[in-house]
Write a protein that binds this DNA or RNA. Structure first.
Lengths: 211, 211
DNA sequence: CTGCATCCGGGCCGATACTG
DNA sequence: CAGTATCGGCCCGGATGCAG
């Protein structure tokens, strides 16, 4: 992208991250290093030449590095974009209605809203394992030792199994819609749902505004 | 911009704000409503047809509204992008070296880094008025009743007058560079600088990471 | 003069085909 | 699997025109 040529933090930042697909590539790399094909799978709609070209310029700009095993990883600078992505995600939440017919979905995308909703360590969180089945691959969300994490694959012994479309699943975990509403949107619940209710998501609008 | 067609908060958000110039237009409107010509002046490099087209689609998407006096203003949704802009600005700060020869600058842009550095109300802040002369128009930064505000125009009776290139001025106010370094970069200081030191900017990396 | 609309050249994007 | 090559089309940028 052509530079804005403005001596302004926002403009200079956008010179680096404003190109199409760049922040979505960062989204794919935030959970950890990925190979070219994995990135391509996680970015439905991207042209293969564009992915290659973006990865090249993102390396030049210090956002991404290529590991010895040929996987791509975020640098420290690139990792710093997590706050930018989460800010956009929080802002865009009201825009998230139901999934449109032509919209692609990958189950691993829910890692980010889940992480943003249950940040940091909270010892009072219950121990709970949730298996989520929406989209291409089952995901396991685990609250353990006060931290909430998510990873690919089914859970060996889940306390709860949630099956359904992404908006119903994520909305229900975040407790932004109740069970009746979630089931109306296609959610199926198996197992003991009580522990889930004690996960206590961060208040959606909790933002520090004064020093 | 063509939609990403991904059911993901980041992707849907970027469908709305990912177009070139959109976030810079938000930057111009965050301090308050502006007329078309004022926007054009504050966005050096934008083509006039693009500004018109962006304002049109930003209205359609609910970011901007046109007031009765023909000025453009942010809606509540658009105002919500402040956190996104500040997140990008914080991230981009390490990219802000000196101003390049071909980079444009407008003095009112410093309102945002200043606001981001001295957020909210802090009763212990000293009363101080600073006149800043860098760029096209003098700006007045005022710490009053615990709040730090900035506006166009010279100050009637400033405690301090700072003259010089933007990187030196902003870096010095933020206390990220000391006076010697700032003067080496071209800063000229007039008046009593002691009150300024007690403004106590927010810690640059002060971010809540755990609930 | 302000606030756009029109036109045109160039660059970026998207889709497909192809290669080691 | 991991890209490269190519090409049509759309978007962007700059100049210009024009109505109130």
């Amino acid at each position: 992208m052509r530079s804005y040529n403005q001596y302004c933090g926002l403009a200079r930042g956008l010179d680096v991250i404003g190109d199409r697909w760049v922040l979505l590539i960062v989204r794919e790399l935030l959970p950890g290093p990925r190979r070219y094909g994995e990135l391509h799978d996680g970015l439905p709609g991207i042209a293969t030449n564009l992915l290659a070209e973006r990865l090249r310029t993102m390396q030049e700009r210090g956002l991404v590095e290529k590991l010895d095993d040929d996987r791509y990883a975020l640098t420290e600078l690139g990792e710093g974009l997590r706050e930018v992505l989460y800010a956009i995600g929080r802002w865009a939440y009201p825009l998230m209605g139901e999934q449109e017919p032509d919209e692609a979905f990958r189950s691993h995308w829910i890692v980010h809203p889940i992480s943003a909703m249950f940040p940091g360590i909270d010892e009072s969180r219950p121990e709970v394992t949730i298996e989520v089945r929406c989209g291409d691959t089952p995901m396991t969300i685990r609250s353990h030792a006060g931290a909430v994490t998510a990873q690919h694959g089914p859970a060996p012994a889940p306390d709860v199994v949630l099956t359904g479309p992404p908006d119903a699943v994520v909305g229900f975990i975040a407790q932004r819609i109740d069970r009746a509403e979630a089931e109306k949107r296609g959610l199926a619940v198996a197992g003991d749902v009580r522990a889930l209710k004690r996960l206590r998501p961060a208040v959606p609008t909790a933002r520090r505004t004064s020093a």
